[in-house]
Design a binder for these strands. Structure first.
Lengths: 95, 95
DNA sequence: TTTGAATAAGAATTCAAA
DNA sequence: TTTGAATTCTTATTCAAA
């Protein structure tokens, strides 16, 4: 069930701005995933989600692209270590 | 002074793994910036730093790259198109 | 406008337990 | 191995104040 819950979490944060784990929890419950904050915290860690600022200055959970995972060595030198890319491409609903 | 402190914060997190604001605070004090956690929290927000997982599964503050804002066109051509397409496909903005 | 002290709010972890 | 309840830890914000 964890796998399905993870997929649902990704769907939720992709389609709406979610700024706390409690809010994520509520959406999960609407989808039938009745878990607690402790579990959501673990899920977020496993999914490597991060809390970012959106363009309005509000916090929001987002997916990340880790440099190491997605960037070729050619480009590695262009960016500092530990720099990540946040993908806002799918998050235009409120713009 | 805030500007200098911001620069120092970026330097600190670039050169060491920093996993809490308290730890960042201690490094700042070593560099002569004697502020409180409240200020560090604000700094982190202004710098748009994020807490990520490093490869060891430890939390660490990192800088981010906003795809839309800062990615070079060269980089963009290699990676971002696919990302945009994937994310766009999954984004329904009120349909 | 920037900051600190205090507090509220949020998130990670511990410690069973199944 | 996954989870919840409780707890601890961490971070954001409020409310002065300079």
């Amino acid at each position: 069930m964890k796998t399905k819950r993870h997929a649902k979490i990704l769907e939720i944060i992709r389609t709406r701005p979610v700024d706390t784990q409690e809010e994520l929890l509520r959406w999960l419950k609407e989808s039938g995933f009745d878990v607690t904050q402790a579990t959501v915290s673990r899920d977020i860690k496993e999914l490597r989600l991060i809390k970012t600022l959106d363009t309005d200055g509000r916090y929001r959970y987002s997916t990340v692209k880790l440099e190491n995972d997605t960037m070729s060595s050619k480009f590695h030198s262009l960016f500092a270590d530990a720099v990540v890319n946040i993908d806002y491409a799918g998050n235009h609903c409120g713009d």
